[in-house]
């Protein structure tokens, strides 16, 4: 280790650079797709969790407890090794064509994170005064439409700091996808390390990528707040 000589050129150009870039792109794709799906699914589960229909509410409750309390790695393995046994053949065929590892990782990340997002959104909804629901209902909106147009937009605003946290966790957790062979950032950094023995450089690159990714996600959510949600005005 004392004789270790740094050689950044290995990772800034040529084949190994290309590996890292392709890893970066996979990480970005995996994170972006999973974040969007986890957010939508989280919204749906949150609404189901608060439904007046008992079976629906209980389904959401079990979903939340189950997926929040089992390790993500186990869930990734479950979707990768176990899901083809329970999924219909059509879906399996399609998954095999589109890259089964990637799909399994995306599904696991989506479902795992959606459970946390749903709980965050639910506490956001509970913090909206009940008069807002009354105002919406008395205007003639159904329960679900009231949620859609009046309650959730306000709840999501309140929920933004914890949501950003969940998005960041998801981006970092996406590195676990390497365990099933998804060639994302961490996977490629390890590849570079095992070919060149330049582990320090390779993992520094990976670290920087995750850091920049975090900063970008935070900035994008802030931008969304200002441009789309008009938070600064409504505050």
């Amino acid at each position: 280790m004392l004789n270790y000589t740094f050689d950044w050129s290995i990772i800034t150009s040529g084949q190994y650079f290309d590996w890292l870039v392709s890893g970066l792109i996979t990480t970005l794709k995996l994170s972006a797709i999973s974040i969007v799906m986890a957010f939508i699914l989280g919204l749906v589960i949150a609404v189901m969790r608060m439904s007046h229909n008992k079976p629906v509410r209980w389904f959401a409750h079990i979903y939340l407890e189950f997926f929040r309390n089992t390790p993500l790695l186990v869930q990734i393995f479950f979707w990768y090794f176990g899901s083809y046994k329970i999924l219909p053949t059509v879906i399996n065929d399609w998954l095999n064509k589109t890259g089964f590892e990637f799909a399994a990782a995306a599904i696991a990340l989506t479902i795992y994170t959606s459970a946390f997002i749903a709980e965050d959104i639910r506490s956001g909804v509970l913090s909206i005064p009940k008069e807002q629901m009354e105002a919406a209902r008395s205007a003639g909106f159904s329960y679900l439409r009231s949620m859609q147009y009046i309650i959730l937009p306000q709840a999501v605003r309140i929920t933004i700091p914890p949501l950003v946290n969940q998005f960041l966790n998801l981006a970092k957790n996406s590195s676990l996808a390497m365990t099933i062979g998804v060639m994302e950032m961490t996977y490629q950094a390890r590849q570079v390390e095992s070919y060149t023995f330049k582990g320090f450089e390779a993992f520094t690159a990976a670290t920087v990528v995750y850091l920049v990714l975090s900063i970008v996600i935070t900035a994008m959510v802030n931008l969304y707040n200002e441009k789309v949600l008009n938070i600064h005005k409504a505050a």
């Binding site: 008069e131 807002q132 009354e134 105002a135 919406a136 209902r137 008395s138 205007a139 003639g140 909106f141 159904s142 009046i150 937009p153 306000q154 605003r157 949600l229 008009n230 409504a234």
Partner: peptide
């Protein structure tokens, strides 16, 4: 009931406008 409510306006003591 939603149709009925659309025909009846309700004004609350605390206004209850949509703040967003």
């Amino acid at each position: 009931i939603n149709k009925l409510r659309a025909e009846v306006g309700f004004v609350f003591q605390q206004f209850n406008l949509y703040p967003h």
